[in-house]
Design a protein around this nucleic acid. Structure first.
Length: 550
RNA sequence: UGGGGAUUAGCCAAGCGGUAAGGCAACGGACUUUGACUCCGUCAUUCCUAGGUUCGAUCCCUAGAUCCCCAGCCA
């Protein structure tokens, strides 16, 4: 269930004001990813912001691919992004590509040249860097800054025609080389790149820069509120300049908010790509990745992600959200939805010495004690069962409520058992324990003769279904290093632990992405790629909270 | 040290001149056939600091501190 609290934030307040003042009749937002990687949970914040704002105020939201750099982009990414946005629960009104507008962008650039607001520069990238000045010193005008309009027009047409090599010429805005805002020191508008584009093929060999293209895209689509992250703040004057000087009839406005950071989490497409490329993880959808596809494969739900980003809020201060907030929302979402069954991750055999050999009985169990609609199931019980290794100690500490010699515990949905003896191997490890059960204490019988402090889970041994469990820890150990260049030095070597255990026999019918609670362990997801009916594979989404410390 | 931002509890975050919402976390306790869940309780006399204006300031003014972003033909 979604977190219902629709809290206010500064962008929503702006929208309300704009609607009330009549500045806009209907809001139009857009989610504008570059198809150069997979979406991560940081993008989810932006997606929810844009789509939910439009939903709330009866506006529209476009999905627009910002595909102005063919060197880095690929159709694989556009398909993955579409899938992720839909999976999160959103449907776009318009589906567009920046490349849809290349001709218009070119014509607007011609207009800029005709107005004397843009010129062709012959300087190399290096020369441009040198003449741009520094943070404290103004830049110097390019020697080509005052070329005639006719010459600029001619050169620009020849750039388009492919007469020049990459880097030989560039179209620049003519603004102010001494502006204290470096973004206004004659920023680049068009560069030459003889690269095949995933949409337009070889139709173009010049491509617009983001800072020039983006405001045009917004203006063409009638976007009213163009929402981006804080690092684009200094670009806003140029954004407005482009809209103004290109004489766009519609004038979108840019608003910036702080991007999402989460503790112990790498949140940058570049770093995530590095993790994939260097095989630190298996793929973009590795459950350890904070990508939408990784979270999906791990077992997170769209509802939990939406609730999470809503609760985080939208503000302008850089912040790092505690990963436990995300965990809170998946626990809350799955609490009533998922079946609660038993799984033994690290098995220890128990022989119930007074239970008849060869006998098996079926016991009734609720699938979710807090949600009767999920019904009941039957589970087998017999003389030999598996319990968790953690649930037995030869020499227990104080306040240990589980099994130890002489102690009695409840077997969830079954009987009380009492430990009488145990067997060790040559290394001194406990490999089997012997108990007796009390038939009077059967679950559901109403027995109240005596109380027991602990209840443990178990699986009947002969019918237990072998299963693989994949337990995850953060990929990054230092909680503040997730977004720094040194993050590779903080990779957690134990981010994945694969163990073999058992689940109840009926688990053979699980389907990919089924979500279950395993008693006392946590919530798990059936892995869509690795799981098989005879050997299910479960990804742990999140453990249960526990106040027990040894 | 140019320009642009930010600063409210351990982490997020409301608040818009009338006396500090909410969530997470944490800590007590109750309950419990999950050491879970649920429930009850605790958790900022103070909002980066110092002055000022005001009957009254987290909010307005002045000065300062700290942190983030900008010198791609990336987005």
């Amino acid at each position: 269930m979604d977190n219902p609290s629709a809290s206010s934030h500064f962008i929503k307040n702006i929208v309300i004001d704009d609607l009330q003042s009549g500045k806009v009749d209907q809001i139009i937002t857009r989610f504008p990813p570059e198809p150069n990687g997979y979406l991560h949970i940081g993008h989810a914040k932006s997606i929810c912001l844009n789509f939910e704002l439009a939903d709330e105020f009866k506006g529209r939201t476009n999905l627009r691919f910002d595909d102005t750099n063919p060197l880095k982009e690929d159709n694989e990414y556009v398909e993955a992004i579409k899938e992720d946005v839909r999976w999160l629960g959103f449907e776009w009104d318009g589906l567009f590509f920046a490349s849809d507008y290349f001709e218009e962008m070119y014509q607007r650039a011609v207009l800029l040249i005709k107005k004397g607001k843009a010129y062709i520069d012959d300087q190399s990238a290096e020369e441009m860097r040198l003449t741009r000045g520094t943070l404290t010193q103004p830049g110097q005008d390019s020697p080509h800054r005052n070329r005639s309009i006719e010459e600029n027009l001619d050169l620009f047409a020849r750039m388009r025609a492919g007469e020049f090599k990459d880097g030989d010429k560039i179209l620049r805005a003519k603004i102010d080389m001494s502006s204290p805002n470096i973004n206004l020191r004659d920023p680049a508008l068009y560069r030459i790149s003889h690269t095949t584009h995933h949409n337009t093929g070889d139709q173009w060999c010049i491509y617009p820069m983001y800072a020039y293209a983006h405001p045009l895209e917004d203006a063409i689509e009638g976007v009213t509120h163009s929402i981006c992250t804080l690092e684009f703040e200094d670009q806003r004057p140029f954004y407005d300049w482009v809209v103004q000087e290109c004489e766009m009839e519609h004038q979108p406005k840019q608003y910036e908010f702080a991007r999402l950071n989460i503790t112990n989490t790498v949140m940058s497409k570049r770093f995530l790509k590095q993790l994939v490329d260097e095989k630190i993880v298996d793929a973009w959808d590795d459950p350890r990745m904070p990508t939408i596809s990784g979270l999906r494969r791990k077992g997170f739900t769209p509802e939990a992600i939406r609730s999470f980003v809503r609760e985080v809020g939208v503000a302008r201060s850089n912040s790092t959200v505690d990963e436990r907030l995300l965990e809170h929302f998946i626990r809350e979402d799955l609490k009533l939805k998922s079946l609660r069954t038993m799984a033994v991750l690290r098995p220890l055999k128990v022989v119930i010495t007074n239970y008849p050999e060869g006998q098996t009985e079926l016991l009734e169990a609720e699938n979710n004690s807090e949600n009767p609609e999920l019904g009941n199931r039957e589970i087998p019980f017999s003389r030999e069962i598996y319990i968790e290794q953690d649930d037995f100690m030869e020499n227990p500490p104080n306040k240990y409520f589980r099994l130890f010699p002489g102690n009695e515990v409840r077997l969830k949905n079954a009987y009380f058992i009492k430990c009488n003896d145990f067997v060790k191997d040559e290394q001194g490890n406990v490999i089997e324990i012997h108990c007796t059960y009390d038939i009077e204490t059967k679950s559901g019988s109403g027995f109240s003769g005596r109380k027991v402090k602990g209840t443990i889970h178990w699986v009947e041994a002969s019918q237990a279904l072998p299963a693989e469990f994949r337990l995850y820890e953060p990929l990054i150990l230092d909680e503040e290093k997730g977004d720094s260049d040194s993050f590779m030095e903080h990779i957690n070597p134990n981010s994945l632990e694969v163990i073999q255990g058992f689940v109840e026999p009926n688990m053979s019918s699980t389907q990919a992405h089924d979500k279950l609670q395993f008693f006392r362990h946590g919530y798990f997801n059936v892995d869509p790629k690795l799981s098989e009916p005879s050997k299910p594979v479960f990804n742990r989404i999140v453990s249960l909270k526990s106040s027990f410390v040894v």
